[in-house]
């Protein structure tokens, strides 16, 4: 049983840590939104794993709240950027959003060649 504890929490922690790295690296806001979404799901999974392994149902209502929170957060950010894009003629640079990170990276790699 100890091995099961170590394995599950190790895998959950590794996944959460990698999601955190992506959250820090970016490069764009939407990458961070996707990473936060995944991180919250992993947290919910960790709570459920704890509830299951320890036979402790007190944490189960927290699960409902966390899964609600993940949905509301990502939809909120998507709608916020979508609202800015609606006033823009192109991809949002003319209303104050920065240049898309993927395009910047592509141009940088072309310049190196």
């Amino acid at each position: 049983m100890t091995i099961v504890y170590w394995l599950t929490y190790g895998m959950l922690g590794g996944g959460a840590l990698l999601a955190l790295v992506r959250l820090g690296l970016g490069p764009s806001l939407l990458d961070r939104v996707v990473a936060t979404d995944t991180l919250l799901v992993i947290i919910a999974a960790g709570l459920a794993v704890h509830a299951g392994l320890a036979r402790d149902p007190t944490l189960v209502p927290v699960l409902v709240v966390v899964s609600l929170l993940a949905f509301v957060g990502s939809v909120l950010v998507a709608r916020y950027i979508g609202g800015m894009l609606l006033r823009s003629a192109d991809d949002g640079q003319d209303v104050g959003l920065p240049e898309a990170a993927e395009e910047r990276a592509a141009r940088a790699s072309e310049g190196e060649r």
Binding site: S28, V60, V64, A70, V75, V77, A78, L85, L97
Partner: peptide, 29 residues
Amino acid sequence: MLLLVAVFQMLTAPVSAHMVSRVAYRRRH
């Protein structure tokens, strides 16, 4: 309650993925 969480995930995951990917396409990400 666990069933509620599972059903809620299956309802909301496509909605948020749709909205985020749509914005990502428009923003050239």
